Amino acid sequence: MPVLQTLGYPAGKAKLIPGYGDTEEKAVRGVMVHGWEAIPDCTYTKYGVNVLPGDGYVLTALILVGE
C-alpha cells in the first residue's frame, strides 16, 4: 500500500496475491488458491493483474485495492 500511496493512489486497503507454476494455468490457479478469501470481498473495487513468463516458469500477481 505504501507504493500505491507514493504513486498518488488513494488506497484505503490493498492485497497482493501471488501465483507460480510451470504453465500459465497453474500460475493463475495459484492466485485463486492464495486469494480465495480476498477475491470475493466486494470492498475491493479496483484490481490489476500481471503475468510474467520466465524460462520454465510463470509468475502471476493480482493486486486488489479498496478505498
Rank of each mutant, 00 (worst) to 15 (best):
M1H: 05
M1T: 02
M1W: 01
P2L: 00
P2G: 00
P2Y: 05
P2D: 14
P2E: 07
V3F: 03
V3R: 12
L4T: 03
Q5S: 09
Q5W: 09
Q5R: 15
T6N: 11
L7Q: 01
G8S: 04
G8F: 13
Y9N: 07
A11C: 00
A11W: 02
G12F: 04
K13H: 06
K13L: 04
A14W: 01
K15L: 00
K15H: 05
K15Q: 13
K15P: 00
L16S: 13
I17R: 02
I17W: 07
I17A: 04
P18F: 09
G19L: 03
G19P: 07
Y20S: 02
Y20T: 07
Y20G: 00
Y20P: 00
G21K: 10
G21S: 06
T23H: 06
T23V: 04
E24Y: 03
K26E: 11
A27D: 06
V28A: 10
V28P: 01
R29F: 07
G30L: 11
G30S: 14
G30I: 13
V31E: 10
V31D: 04
V31R: 06
M32G: 05
M32P: 00
M32K: 14
V33L: 14
V33D: 15
H34P: 02
H34D: 13
H34A: 13
G35K: 09
G35A: 12
G35Q: 05
W36V: 04
W36N: 14
E37K: 15
E37M: 12
E37T: 05
E37I: 11
A38I: 00
I39F: 03
I39C: 02
P40C: 04
P40D: 13
P40K: 05
T43C: 04
T43I: 06
Y44Q: 14
Y44N: 11
Y44M: 12
T45S: 09
T45R: 14
Y47T: 08
Y47I: 06
G48V: 03
V49L: 15
N50S: 07
V51S: 11
V51D: 06
V51H: 04
V51F: 13
V51T: 14
L52H: 14
P53E: 12
P53L: 07
P53T: 02
P53Q: 05
G54K: 11
G54R: 10
D55A: 15
G56L: 06
G56A: 08
Y57L: 07
Y57W: 15
V58F: 10
L59W: 04
L59A: 05
T60R: 07
T60Q: 05
A61F: 05
A61D: 05
A61K: 07
L62N: 10
I63M: 11
L64W: 09
V65R: 07
V65D: 10
V65N: 08
G66S: 09
